[in-house]
Design a protein around this nucleic acid. Structure first.
Length: 302
DNA sequence: CTCCAGGGTAGTC
DNA sequence: GACTACCATGGA
């Protein structure tokens, strides 16, 4: 990683790097990036180019420094495209803010979380693994499980004295031993789900292109839920975070329901009619609403 | 000790 | 299609 380059990305309207950074850094210990001094470090492997991005803010622009191996032109292109997609920088979110302002109980979000973007997980395999790991356990534990998996099967890359990790490759995880995952405190079922999923990706039976070739939202949901361990919640989570499908709502999500109750938007967790009524008002921005409601679960430090 | 956490599956009716 | 038991494990 001797080679270095850097560039700037102009920041769009209603974009706040510090809000995005805060979400990335909230209360948890995510092993897929490192944050220090208002700078986020992230390792990537794109088309055989290896890179570590260092992203910070510099007077209305994002300053991106890249340490890499590989082709410079390809790295620049890939890095720009990755960050823009990761932080959802090319979307005009004003229409969403207008919808929020029409809701008495949610209008405060346009000020409180102003400029927060839906942080994505570009790698579909990673997004699916992460959502399987997170099923039915608290997030603190889920992040710990992910860290163990990535530490054991992922690739560590040194950057500025800090270790950044690439998520494990499907081929690697497909060969993993269930007992080894059990020792990392994965349940028997989750170990089976993850290794099975890795096998599908390794064989090319599932990947982003496969989903992109399916034209309808429902069709993509079906393709995902056909996989063992992936139910409707996991499918929608991945469609939201990786495929960036605006209409994806992770129904039944414990955090989402909690946030809806907190805001007194529904009577109780079973009030599906109330949930539908609300989301109907956010056509095209459903996933953004979910994301902002998740954001509301972690209160801002003073 | 109990209840819950950013669920899913398999079985039953 | 809806309801139910069961899975598994740490946190509060």
């Amino acid at each position: 990683m001797q080679k270095k380059t850097s560039f700037l990305i102009p920041v769009p309207e209603l974009f706040s790097f510090s809000e995005c950074l805060w979400f990335l850094n909230r209360d948890f210990d995510d092993c897929m990036h490192t944050i220090e001094d208002n700078t986020v470090l992230k390792a990537l492997s794109i088309d055989r180019n290896l890179m570590v991005l260092s992203v910070s803010e510099d007077i209305g622009q994002l300053k991106v420094e890249v340490a890499y191996t590989g082709n410079r032109a390809e790295v620049l292109l890939a890095a720009k495209s990755y960050i823009s997609g990761w932080l959802d920088m090319e979307r005009d979110i004003q229409p969403f803010y207008t919808l929020l302002q029409n809701q008495k109980k949610l209008a405060y979000m346009t000020e409180a979380y102003s400029g927060l973007r839906l942080i994505g997980i570009s790698d579909l395999f990673e997004a699916l693994c992460w959502s399987i790991i997170g099923q039915q356990i608290n997030l603190t534990f889920a992040y710990r499980l992910k860290r163990r998996l990535v530490g054991r099967f992922g690739t560590a890359i040194e950057a500025g004295g800090k270790a950044c990790f690439l998520f494990p490759k499907p081929e690697t995880l497909a060969e993993a031993d269930i007992t080894e995952l059990r020792e990392m405190q994965y349940s028997q079922k989750k170990a089976e789900y993850l290794i099975g999923l890795a096998g599908l990706f390794a064989k090319g039976e599932m990947n982003k292109a496969v989903l992109e070739n399916i034209s309808t939202f429902a069709g993509r949901q079906q393709a995902l839920t056909a996989i063992r361990g992936i139910g409707i919640w996991t499918a929608n989570y991945a469609l939201m975070k990786s495929m960036r499908m605006d209409e994806a709502i992770p129904y039944g999500d414990a955090g989402l329901l909690q946030a809806l109750v907190n805001h007194e938007l529904i009577k109780d967790r079973k009030d599906q009619a109330g949930i539908d009524r609300l989301f109907r008002k956010f056509k095209g921005w459903e996933s953004y609403l979910v994301f902002y409601l998740w954001r509301s679960l972690s209160h801002k430090p003073v």
